[in-house]
């Protein structure tokens, strides 16, 4: 038994996670150790179902190709569709390639060193400044369109809003807003986070395998020193799993919902209505407007 413990410890070292030898913590009560073991066993069981939460969503399919905005079709760019799980697949993981599948120490380690194949993941964002005659009505129309498309309001400040809309409808929304007035500023950006997402998913899978092994080791450990060392390592691994899980959730959210910053500018206060025309050459003529008259600014 002692020999098998050493073998398991060496396998941990091969994963880059050697147990630390410095053990100086006070001895725990046997009942408390039992509870802790049960807790880690439950966590290991939970990890098998939670890892499915980070499957990438299918990339957005751009509906239209009209206008000046940049559009790409990503739906056909999946590396290997047979390995990809859809977002709504929340079932228990049982595929051989599943990195989080719990194992017993006696079995060989199918370490998930192969990066999981996922669809292309793009974060879309846009900033639009639109010159309109009736900003309030335009704002209401923009918010109504957002609700209709399944988006939500992130921030509002007078005639400025920041909204999130499903990525699949991103270009549709931008196109509709552009029809509301004259676009005086348009910035559209996209960030490909496919590689970042794949790396994090791979790391998460490795950490979950490591946690399963540590839990198995903990059950076999005989001395208090061994148990303390393994628990310390478990704590570190759990911390990393939580951090990566959070990062993956955030990335998934940014991919699922594009961010659009929208500013409506009244025509009498904003930029030129017809930007392609030359501005009035006599400077003082430009200062005549109704807001200056009522505001007494001149």
């Amino acid at each position: 038994m002692k020999h098998s413990l050493w073998v398991l410890a060496l396998s941990l070292l091969s994963l880059g996670c050697a147990a630390r030898k410095e053990m100086s913590a006070p001895m725990s009560a046997p009942g408390r150790e039992y509870e802790r073991n049960q807790h880690y066993s439950r966590m290991a069981a939970e990890s098998t179902s939670s890892s499915a939460d980070y499957s990438p969503a299918p990339a957005p399919v751009m509906v239209s190709t009209g206008g000046s905005t940049e559009k790409k079709e990503y739906a056909d760019e999946e590396v290997s569709a047979d390995k990809m799980r859809p977002t709504d697949d929340r079932g228990p993981e049982s595929t051989p390639a599943d990195p989080a599948k719990p194992e017993t120490p006696a079995q060989p380690n199918p370490s998930p060193t192969v990066r999981p194949s996922i669809a292309r993941m793009i974060i879309y964002a846009a900033r639009l400044v639109v010159n309109v005659l009736e900003p309030d009505k335009s704002m209401e129309a923009a918010l109504a369109l957002m609700t209709k498309m399944g988006g939500f309001l992130s921030q509002r400040n007078n005639l400025y809003i920041e909204i999130r809309v499903p990525s699949a409808l991103f270009f549709d929304y931008v196109r509709e807003v552009e029809k509301m007035g004259i676009v005086v500023q348009r910035t559209i950006s996209s960030e490909d986070v496919t590689e970042q997402f794949a790396d994090l998913t791979l790391r998460l899978g490795n950490l979950k395998v490591m946690r399963t092994r540590l839990i198995a080791l903990l059950e076999l450990a005989k001395t208090v020193e061994d148990r303390l060392a393994i628990e310390r390592e478990l704590s570190r691994v759990n911390g990393e799993i939580d951090a990566i899980s959070g990062r993956l959730r955030m990335l998934q959210n940014l991919v699922d919902f594009a961010t659009i910053q929208l500013q409506f500018v009244p025509r009498q206060e904003g930029g030129p209505v017809t930007p392609e025309k030359l501005a009035t050459p006599v400077w003082w003529v430009k200062s005549f407007d109704v807001s200056n008259l009522f505001g007494g600014q001149r």
């Binding site: 025509r267 009498q268 209505v273 017809t274 501005a279 050459p281 003529v285 430009k286 005549f288 407007d289």
Partner: peptide, 13 residues
């Protein structure tokens, strides 16, 4: 002409 252009085409009145 210069006022009409400014007020209608640039101010949007």
């Amino acid at each position: 002409e210069i006022f009409k252009r400014e007020l209608t085409e640039f101010k949007g009145y």
